[in-house]
Nucleic acid binder design. Structure first.
Lengths: 205, 205
DNA sequence: GTCTATAATAAGATAGAC
DNA sequence: GTCTATCTTATTATAGAC
């Protein structure tokens, strides 16, 4: 994530924007070069090929996404409070870059020519990251009767899914319900509370 | 959706597969032609350009998705029963083609050069389709005290989001939790019940 | 309607000067 | 490190025979 030269930084910055917006196949090296304020030759000088540049960007963004996801929230013992702050923090993070999640899900779904090793790197390098610990936390809450009997895996990605879908659906929702501004801050704030309430009522004992 | 010639049908069939898997930019006319058992010249003879062929496929799939979504489920008055059968039916539909939803969300998110008119067509043509009626149904259930006070928009796409995310996340989940087979039928069955229970507990009075 | 052959162009990548 | 000019290949699209 830290690059020695300023040019390198500008390239990765530009590439990230273009890849996220257009996807790997839709992205054009020319556009990336242009946005970075350089030419294609220099692009290849630094990253050798589109594929390598893409891998760099993808790795950065996925690992950032996971760091945000698992670390951005104060760890509270009590389940209700934890859930509340988690949902608020995560939706805020997603709100900062609504396109990112679409990009990641698309590329992950493209099946992993490169990805097995890539995921290895991400999970190895980020020490605090642990999907397993989230599952454990839920299991314990069930045992302590803090929440009702639920499948921990299903609950975990129900929470994630509700947060993520908020932004995945936005372009469609604008078409379906033009009377509402789904990108407005007030909608996002309301969404947070509605998601929290739905889940909390859904799992409290 | 009905094409005069057999060749036309085969082309659209092949194009649908390729576009869904690779996306618009990643798809290759050569591959589509090959899968349809013809050559590229004939492809252009029928559909003139990649863009037109793509529009045809996209329109078909989106409208099919909406038909399935709004029509595939028996309309029950009682909320709990309706919710249960709706979730089961919709997850079953999505399960038939898990890649489809990723394709649609990606393309919708790509922003609508062509799409405004396209959506018009879809919603005009499909008479039974009505997002508004779903919202109304929820509002009534709230008034009748069948469910607690919730925002109908948020509830509607929370339901949709939970169903959809089941399949969006699959490739990632396989990596995160290799100990579980998320594509197995038993997982899907369990998922249906967990989603229903979460929502129903989440909204019952 | 369907094919082979080919044009036209777009896009990634490199050579070589500075 | 950075640029201009250029090569190579992939990809869409069409011309023209059958």
């Amino acid at each position: 994530m830290d690059y020695s030269s300023e040019t390198e930084r500008k390239i990765v910055q530009a590439a990230t924007e273009v890849f996220i917006q257009k996807g790997k196949d839709g992205a054009r090296m020319q556009e990336i070069a242009h946005r970075a304020g350089i030419n294609q030759a220099l692009l290849h000088y630094y990253f050798r090929s589109k594929d390598r540049l893409y891998r760099e960007v993808f790795k950065n963004e996925v690992s950032r996404q996971f760091r945000d996801f698992f670390n951005s929230v104060p760890v509270t013992e009590e389940m209700q409070e934890f859930l509340h702050s988690f949902i608020h923090h995560y939706i805020d993070k997603l709100h900062e870059n609504p396109q990112l999640i679409r990009f990641i899900l698309w590329e992950i779904g493209s099946g992993g020519e490169n990805f097995p090793e890539l995921f290895q790197e991400i999970f190895d390098s980020a020490s605090k990251i642990s999907p397993q610990s989230a599952i454990e936390k839920i299991k314990q809450a069930v045992q302590r009767n803090e929440i009702r009997q639920v499948d921990p895996y299903n609950l975990l990605f129900s929470i994630i899914g509700l947060c993520i879908y908020t932004f995945l659906a936005q372009p469609l929702l604008k078409k379906l319900f033009p009377e509402i501004d789904f990108t407005a801050n007030e909608f996002i704030e309301k969404r947070k509370e509605e998601v929290f309430n739905l889940i909390w009522h859904g799992i409290k004992p």
